[in-house]
Design a protein around this nucleic acid. Structure first.
Length: 590
RNA sequence: CGGGGUGUAGCUUAGCCUGGUAGAGCGCCUGCUUUGGGAGCAGGAGGUCGAGAGUUCGAAUCUCUCCGCCCCGACCA
């Protein structure tokens, strides 16, 4: 039982100027966090309590799924990362942690970095400690701070430079066992989000810099989310837009016959899809080939799409380059023979075709059949370009960004799109890290194999904000029971009356006995202030004890999520409050 | 990294265009009144106007540089 007057909940009447979205404003207004700098936040006592609720539930669900808690350093020797498979790709978002020195000498090369995740730490640990199939499977997790120097921190805790994450790492003897571990964790995630009262949907996702074979993201639907989810309710298909595919190109599509010989035509000044769509050329975007030049691990390659399609850059990850980026105009001309805007992938027109690491075409260009593309000669395009006959395609693949309305692969029904906040991500990693770090085991046939890994993350601090984003109204936060910093708030309107405070303590004790965390608002403030603050901080169950009510012999009971107020005779109050607490906890699955 | 915006008291901000040395609301302190949905009155404390340089008799205001914060974009030819 805590007394508000002895505690610390600095609420604000007005929203901070630097907060844009509801959950960010409420985090600050309700006294959960304060900003130190961009993407850096202090968790005030009230916010910390929520974090502790979330981490404890998370811990319980992880342990129920068989994972074992440990704690790893946040400061990592840089050698570990240099040895790992993703240093080149990850270092840009990593903080270095060298000695500040004496201020007189130039800084040395970094010897330490701050951990953005812990594959590079856990894998070497497991390598040295586990060598037999008898000791597998194992799944280790921690709930700790992560450091990522985000290019652009946003929306309070939503994308922070320092944040709290549950990260787990599974080690199995083979692929089948790893898949089992993966789905055990998927179930644990679902249980966790359900318990804390958050709607989070598992969607298929891209593996990104983490690598690995397949993965799911857990998304909280919200307008302000960072990610687009493509889904179809009926078929159950759901995927991050980066990963999503559609049945736009029919499986039985036949390649179009050539429509005639290729013709070159002059297009002075035309360097965009839109310009070629306009008169006098009037080539619709879905009849144009768009040719993009990228540099992958130092070598150029081409991507060919329909003019009307967008490249989904994440899908280029399937090509196997460690690092890739768009080529600059200066790089493009010597390779292609023309400036951007007049590029094409027609056989024989590329100036230095031998320099290319490949020409990768999106399946959807087959829908064009015969179309128009750049001639690799400034100011000229080619028409009657036939996909099968004329394009020097190394490999077809799925590189375009799916749009809402396209047919679902599973059902053929139109796909829909909505925004989401990514609160968790699970990966089946495979042997990428175990091979690199030599995490192998010996089987019962005396054979050694690399362990098959999975890795799993929940952004706990981000989840706290997602809860608020999903559960608030105009007056403030509406905490789900299990995420709430306190379950019961007792507003004592006349704290100077000894009998009022005495009753409040009795009710508090009864609620605590029923399993609730209780906060008593004993501040010497006007009732209006207390009610406004009560709504703002969003404690699920509010009891009001006041001199007026005491004269009538009643207290009031009100749920934050509901409008109506129940008056309860003082004589029955303790029992009723205890019953309400028990009931709410049961409903919430506490 | 590029673009846009912004920086004035603990918080929210006016003033800046058109230079004359800073004002309000909230919060805080004192007193009186009030007491069931962010009270009223009276008095008070609190500001190197983000930092530095420049122009000027004089700069919160104009110019330049730097820094912080917020938003958009991340390159689609």
């Amino acid at each position: 039982m805590k007394l508000w007057s002895q505690y610390f909940i600095p609420t604000l009447k007005e929203s901070p100027a630097d907060a844009e979205i509801a959950s960010h404003k409420l985090l600050v207004r309700a006294g959960l966090v304060r900003k130190l700098g961009g993407g850096l936040y202090t968790y005030l006592p009230f916010g910390l309590r929520v974090m502790q609720k979330l981490t404890q539930i998370c811990r319980e669900e992880m342990e129920r799924a068989g994972a074992i808690e440990l704690w790893m350093p946040h400061v990592h020797p840089v050698e570990l990362w240099e040895q790992g498979p993703r240093w080149a790709a990850a270092r840009e978002i990593m903080f270095r942690a060298d000695s500040a020195g004496d201020g007189k000498r130039a800084p040395r090369d970094p010897e330490f970095v701050l951990g953005p995740t812990h594959e590079e730490v856990i894998t070497p640990l497991v390598k040295t400690e586990i060598t037999s199939y008898r000791d597998l499977p194992k799944n280790f997790f921690q709930i700790a701070t992560k450091f990522r120097n985000e290019i652009r921190p946003r929306y309070g805790l939503m994308r922070a430079r320092e944040f709290v994450m549950m990260d787990a790492y599974s080690f199995d003897v083979n692929d089948d066992a790893a898949v089992k571990s993966y789905f055990a964790m998927k179930s644990a995630y679902e249980a966790f989000f359900k318990r804390i009262g958050v709607t989070a949907i598992a969607v298929e996702a891209d593996t990104g810099v983490m690598g690995g074979s397949f993965s799911h993201e857990f998304m909280v639907p919200a307008e302000i989310g960072d990610d687009d989810v493509i889904y179809n309710e009926a078929s159950g298909y759901a995927a991050n837009r980066e990963k999503a595919t559609s049945a736009l190109v029919p499986a039985d599509l036949k390649d179009a016959e050539p429509a005639g010989a290729i013709e070159e035509f002059a297009t002075p000044g035309v360097v965009t899809i839109a310009a070629l769509e306009a008169a006098p050329y009037s080539v619709p975007a879905d009849r144009q080939f768009k040719t993009l030049v990228f540099i992958g691990d130092g070598k150029p390659f081409l991507v060919v799409l329909r003019g009307c399609d967008e490249l989904e850059e994440a899908k280029l990850g399937a090509l196997g380059f460690t690092l890739f980026r768009p080529a600059t105009a200066e790089e493009i001309e010597p390779i292609m023979g023309a400036k951007p805007g007049s590029l094409g992938a027609v056989k024989g027109t590329i100036k230095d075709a031998g320099a290319l690491a490949g020409i990768f075409a999106d399946h959807a260009i087959r829908l064009i059949g015969n179309g128009t593309t750049g001639a690799n000669k400034d100011g000229f395009h080619l028409r009657n370009v036939n996909v099968a006959r004329d394009l020097a395609v190394t490999k077809f693949g799925d590189f375009r960004r799916v749009r809402a309305g396209e047919p679902d692969v599973k059902s053929g029904e139109p796909l829909q799109l909505r925004r989401g906040i990514e609160v968790g991500h699970i990966f089946k990693l495979g042997t990428k890290y175990s091979e690199k770090f030599g995490a192998v085991y010996t089987d019962d046939q005396k054979q050694t194999h690399p362990m098959v890994m999975g890795c799993f993350g929940i952004g706990v601090s981000r989840t706290m904000q997602a809860v608020i984003e999903q559960s608030h109204d105009n007056d403030g936060i509406v905490w789900p029971w299990n995420a709430a910093p306190f379950h019961v708030l007792i507003c004592v309107l006349d704290p100077q009356l000894p009998e009022a405070m005495e009753l409040a303590r009795k009710l508090g004790a009864a609620a605590e006995k029923a399993g609730a965390d209780v906060l008593i608002d004993d501040r010497v403030e006007r009732p209006g202030v207390k009610f406004k603050d009560a709504d703002l901080i969003g404690i699920p169950l509010r009891l009001t004890v006041g001199g007026k009510g005491l004269k009538e012999g009643v207290i009031e009971l009100k749920w934050r999520a509901q409008k109506d107020v129940a008056k309860i005779p003082v004589a029955e109050a303790e029992a009723k409050v205890a019953a309400a607490v028990t009931d709410a906890a049961a409903k919430a699955g506490a």
